[in-house]
Simulated assay, not measured.
Amino acid sequence: MLSKHFSRRQFLFATGGLGVAALAIGVLPKFAGRSVLISEAEASEVFEVTHSDSEWHTLLSDEQYEILREEGTERAYSSPLNNEHREGTFACAGCDLPLFSSTTKFDSRTGWPSFWAPLDKAVATRVDRTFGMVREEVHCRRCGGHLGHVFDDGPKPTGLRYCMNGLAMTFRPV
């Protein structure tokens, strides 16, 4: 007969087994917004613009820090840049590198500023295995700041949707 309750030993054994399984398949909990284990590629990345953690806190608002440095996500439809329709350039809020032209912006109806292509040599991507799924994370190639993710459900000519956090960027009108 099966017991309705786990003993402490059974509980620890079961949760430990789940943790080992999660580790084996790359599904890891996040600690302070970052994956507990950092990929070898991420650990070896070197960026042109670097700051200490306290310097980043000084340079960015709390919300920007959470997104750019801890890979957070802003609430959908909360960014004024989602409704920015003027001609201009969207730049990294961490280092001011121009990232996207307004000519590639489109309304994806997702609640985040979306683009079908970045500017040349503006962004880099890496595999993001958080939350039990595999996605392509987009980050600023100069400071490594987390911008959002890229998906393959965008419009022509690229078919890509760079779904960006508005707080990770600034806008400069032409």
Results as ranks from 00 to 15, higher is better:
2 L>K: 13
3 S>V: 11
3 S>D: 14
3 S>P: 11
3 S>E: 13
4 K>R: 13
4 K>S: 14
5 H>I: 14
5 H>F: 15
6 F>R: 12
7 S>C: 05
9 R>C: 05
10 Q>R: 14
10 Q>F: 08
10 Q>M: 06
13 F>W: 12
15 T>M: 11
18 L>A: 09
20 V>R: 00
21 A>T: 04
22 A>M: 02
22 A>E: 00
23 L>E: 08
25 I>L: 05
25 I>H: 02
25 I>F: 06
25 I>M: 04
26 G>T: 06
29 P>V: 10
31 F>N: 06
31 F>R: 12
34 R>N: 13
35 S>P: 05
35 S>Y: 09
36 V>N: 02
39 S>A: 09
39 S>V: 04
40 E>K: 15
43 A>H: 10
45 E>S: 14
48 E>A: 15
49 V>C: 03
52 S>D: 14
53 D>E: 12
55 E>R: 05
56 W>L: 08
56 W>S: 02
56 W>M: 02
58 T>L: 04
58 T>A: 15
60 L>T: 02
61 S>H: 08
62 D>I: 01
63 E>F: 05
64 Q>I: 11
68 L>W: 01
70 E>D: 07
71 E>D: 06
73 T>Q: 00
77 Y>W: 14
78 S>V: 01
78 S>K: 01
79 S>E: 00
80 P>E: 06
80 P>K: 11
81 L>E: 01
82 N>G: 00
84 E>P: 08
84 E>Y: 07
84 E>G: 07
85 H>W: 13
86 R>W: 09
89 T>Q: 09
90 F>Y: 15
90 F>C: 07
91 A>E: 07
92 C>Y: 02
92 C>L: 14
92 C>W: 12
93 A>I: 00
93 A>G: 06
94 G>L: 10
94 G>I: 10
95 C>N: 02
96 D>S: 15
97 L>T: 15
99 L>C: 11
100 F>G: 07
100 F>V: 12
100 F>M: 14
102 S>Q: 00
103 T>Q: 11
103 T>D: 14
103 T>I: 03
105 K>S: 04
108 S>V: 10
108 S>Q: 09
108 S>M: 06
108 S>K: 12
110 T>E: 08
110 T>P: 06
111 G>H: 08
111 G>S: 07
111 G>F: 13
113 P>L: 09
114 S>C: 09
114 S>E: 05
116 W>S: 05
117 A>H: 10
117 A>N: 10
119 L>Q: 06
120 D>K: 03
121 K>N: 10
121 K>W: 06
121 K>I: 00
122 A>F: 06
123 V>H: 01
124 A>D: 15
127 V>R: 05
127 V>C: 10
130 T>S: 15
132 G>I: 01
133 M>C: 05
139 H>V: 13
139 H>G: 04
141 R>V: 12
143 C>M: 02
143 C>Y: 04
143 C>D: 09
145 G>V: 09
146 H>V: 07
148 G>L: 01
150 V>F: 07
150 V>W: 05
151 F>H: 10
152 D>F: 08
153 D>S: 03
153 D>K: 00
153 D>R: 05
153 D>P: 07
156 K>V: 08
157 P>M: 12
158 T>A: 08
163 C>S: 01
164 M>V: 08
165 N>L: 04
166 G>V: 13
166 G>T: 05
169 M>G: 07
172 R>W: 02
173 P>T: 04
173 P>L: 02
174 V>G: 01
